[in-house]
Amino acid sequence: MITFITGKKGSGKTKKLIEGANAAVASSKGNVVVIEKGLKLTYDVDHAARLIDIEAYGIKGAEALFGFISGICAGNYDVTDIFVDSTLKIMGPDLQQLIPFAEKVNALAAMANTNITCLISADKADIPDGVRQYITEV
């Protein structure tokens, strides 16, 4: 299953991601992965989660992010949860690219039996219609 947590900057999205990641670590019988842009969550997310600084891998754009997430799922069959912070900073500001990205990631999540949560810094009203079914607002 894929979930987009949306809200404007400062609305509490990252706090919700941290809470979700720590809850997943506590309940998961597999691995929890947190993808971030920079190293700002190091002390907030439980050490049992795998933190990945996406900048270290040169990932930019929706296709590259999808491929990166696919590689995580392919490389480790017991990843139960993936959290992506700063999704639009990784993908780029074009909200229309969320539609094909959401479709591909949702199919991947179902195939890999993985929960994937992405943070989107945008108001729900600005999100394209084809993506709204995946939204949880802060």
Rank of each mutant, 00 (worst) to 15 (best):
A102M: 06
F83M: 06
F83P: 02
N113S: 10
K104H: 11
G61H: 07
A112H: 12
I35L: 06
I120T: 01
I2M: 07
D126M: 10
I82T: 01
D94K: 13
M91S: 05
Y77A: 11
R132H: 08
Y134M: 05
A125V: 14
G12Q: 11
E55Y: 02
A24K: 03
V34H: 00
K89I: 13
S11Y: 05
T136K: 12
N106G: 04
V33E: 01
K40W: 15
M1Q: 12
L65M: 13
A56T: 08
I59V: 10
K104G: 08
L108E: 06
G71L: 07
L51Y: 08
G75I: 12
I116R: 03
T42L: 09
L51T: 05
F68V: 06
D94E: 15
V138L: 03
Q96D: 12
G67E: 15
I82S: 02
D46N: 14
N115R: 11
G61D: 12
V131G: 03
Q133H: 12
S86H: 10
K9T: 14
A21R: 01
I82L: 04
P100R: 02
D94T: 14
S11A: 11
P128M: 15
R50V: 13
N106Y: 02
E103G: 09
H47I: 09
I99K: 10
S121Q: 15
A125M: 13
K60R: 09
I120F: 05
E137L: 11
I54K: 00
V45M: 00
E103R: 08
D129G: 04
A56S: 10
K37P: 06
K8Q: 12
K60Y: 12
L88F: 07
I52Y: 00
G10A: 00
I127A: 05
L95Y: 12
V138E: 05
T117D: 05
P100S: 10
I135M: 04
I52D: 02
R132D: 06
I2S: 03
K104A: 12
G75A: 13
L88D: 08
G20L: 07
R50A: 14
L98S: 01
L119W: 08
R50K: 12
R50H: 15
M1S: 11
T14Y: 07
A112D: 12
E55N: 08
Q133P: 04
D81E: 09
I59Q: 04
Q96L: 10
F68Q: 02
N31P: 01
K16P: 03
D78F: 14
Y57I: 03
G71H: 07
E63A: 15
A23D: 09
V33H: 02
L41V: 06
V45Y: 01
T42H: 06
I5A: 06
A109F: 04
V34L: 05
T87W: 02
D78H: 09
T14M: 08
A125T: 13
I120E: 06
I120D: 00
R132T: 14
T87G: 01
I127T: 01
N115W: 14
I52E: 00
N22I: 01
N106C: 03
I99G: 09
F68H: 03
T136D: 15
G7R: 08
K37R: 13
Q133M: 13
I90M: 09
A23C: 07
I5G: 07
D85F: 03
K29L: 13
L51I: 08
I99F: 05
K124E: 14
M1T: 10
K124Y: 15
D46V: 10
Q96Y: 15
N76G: 12
P93G: 12
